[in-house]
């Protein structure tokens, strides 16, 4: 029994190199985007444009993580949309709270 437990009972399929290197390619892209963000933080002037670029790059990274790492794109369509569509509410939250914040700014300073 003891020997049997150590023996593989499941059939092992060999590694698919194309898949393996695709994962590392995604990793490379993520690290490259982060490096670009770093570069921008030190070379560009702080302002709305820079912040916009930072957020755009971040969402782009998030897309890679969710699609390539979490395989959300390969799930059934209704599952995909039930995760993505509710995020629309965040758009409202951003608008509401940032507006609130800038109103406080105007009152305070």
């Amino acid at each position: 029994m003891a020997i049997q437990e150590n023996k593989s009972t499941l059939e092992v399929t060999p590694r698919d190199d194309a898949k393996f290197w695709k994962i590392w390619k995604t990793a490379g892209i993520l690290l490259a985007i982060t490096a670009v963000e770093f570069l921008m933080a030190f070379t560009m002037e702080r302002g709305v444009l820079l912040y916009f670029l930072f957020i755009a790059l971040t969402i782009w990274k998030a897309k890679y993580i969710m699609m390539d790492f979490m395989h959300l794109g390969e799930e059934a369509k209704p599952l995909f949309y039930s995760i993505i569509v509710p995020l629309i509410f965040l758009v409202w939250l951003v608008i509401a709270l940032v507006r609130e914040g800038s109103d406080i700014f105007n009152l305070r300073w």
Binding site: S8, L10, E11, V12, T13, P14, R15, K19, F20, I23, W24, T26, A27, L30, L31, T34, I65, D68, F69
Partner: peptide, 19 residues
């Protein structure tokens, strides 16, 4: 990020039943 990459590799190995 690197630990996330090794995680996907573990998941990928799991699909192949490669303990």
């Amino acid at each position: 990020i690197l630990s996330s990459v090794t995680m996907v590799l573990a998941v990928e190995a799991g699909h192949r039943n490669d303990r």
